[in-house]
Write a protein that binds this DNA or RNA. Sequence first.
DNA 1: GAGTGGTCTAGACCACCCT
DNA 2: GGGTGGTCTAGACCACTCC
Lengths: 252, 252
Amino acid sequence: MAGNEVLLNGSSLHEGVREEIRRRIAAGLYIEGEAIPSAAQLSEEFGVSAITVKRALRDLQSFGVLTAVAGKGTFVKQQRRFLRELSVGMSSTEDARRRGLKLTVDLLSITREKIVDPALLSFDHSDALKLCVRKIVYADGMPVMYDATYVSTDMPDEIVEEFSNCLVTDALQNHGVGLTDIHLIIDAAPASVPAQQAFSIPSGYPMLRRLYHQKTTRPDISVVGLVESPFDRLACSVTLPVGKQAFGEREA
Amino acid sequence: MAGNEVLLNGSSLHEGVREEIRRRIAAGLYIEGEAIPSAAQLSEEFGVSAITVKRALRDLQSFGVLTAVAGKGTFVKQQRRFLRELSVGMSSTEDARRRGLKLTVDLLSITREKIVDPALLSFDHSDALKLCVRKIVYADGMPVMYDATYVSTDMPDEIVEEFSNCLVTDALQNHGVGLTDIHLIIDAAPASVPAQQAFSIPSGYPMLRRLYHQKTTRPDISVVGLVESPFDRLACSVTLPVGKQAFGEREA
DNA sequence: GAGTGGTCTAGACCACCCT
DNA sequence: GGGTGGTCTAGACCACTCC
């Protein structure tokens, strides 16, 4: 055993170990996509308990720096984040393809449910059953969004069929339903349970969320939904013509 | 000891304990702002190890449900979140007061630094020294934003003096500097070290961030900065006139 | 001094992966 | 079977708060 390592950085031991590992990644000693030494090896090298190393590794997973696969090892996570431009007059998938981004969609389920998420209820407080389309959206093969879209149940079947291939708003546009105003609430939140599975992230992982209420040219059709993205996979870009903002009221 | 509790909910023990505590809070058994039983008491009641209870309590802190104070106890966190409206023609502090919100500012430091945050460098890649104003903004006495604002160093002293009282953009407006375009990047991230201290939150806590680049009527003055808010304290609201968005290119 | 949360340890078991 | 990450335990020490 080495034992005599002197890595006092943070106030606590696991913080010191954590930052030392982070430093090695930054220095290129541990390579992106490759496995780092096992917890047992690091425990021996640093001269600390194995559980302390595991604590440090667990925290680095929450920071988006590492991913661990039980039985295989702990790996340095690839760092690639995409920008979602808002307030530009272009369709999302259309623009993505133009920029050389391959957007693919993985349909998870189409169900009939009532909206229960309190955040979405502020958009649509009707107690009616909705058609709920859940999907994962990939950019260049990397999962970036977990989407749950709610539309009214009397949607024509020919439109519903397209939901498995593209985004719901694209499917609507393809069938002559124009899109008008969109109201967004952007916030952050710990990862939901289905998102944890979809992105292979630990519980508590910081997510960027976009709750949307999309109105259309047909007054009987409006779309509400919730997009959840890992913080290290997606960011939003907004340009406001007049540089003034308002600080709004408290939420319900 | 009770011991014979049967609380198998999650796949692991600490998840079961965690959800049981969450349930008791939802049921009103543990009251907002009040202390919950100590880890030792819970350990005895549930018949699990003390460290397992501590693990559950630690996770609930990351979820914004509990706050712990060493030596005092663990408390149910107050749930109050504010909405920040974007794209409305109103000054932030002005609008806040109109709605009965008391916005107060706690000046942390005014320093001269270069911009190092890679995210902000995308707004301003000049290598020049900047005036950096760091502050905490409170809404109704509750801290909601940790702000770091960068302006050019040749700012008149009379404006700099006002930075301690109000937001930087307000100080500029008070001295006849009009605000024009603003470019925002909104993302999520684990809490930075200074934000952890400012908000008394654990490391890894999900934060909503707003990186801004505010141009003014004076071409020599522009403001860039970074606002960091706990996910359970602030959300953003955006309304886009035309319901089309673009999916942008990859970040650098 | 008693109680609290936070940290650290040594040791153990499990499920999983790879050979 | 040997290595991996994930979980759980019993026990200990520390800094802190409150009485």
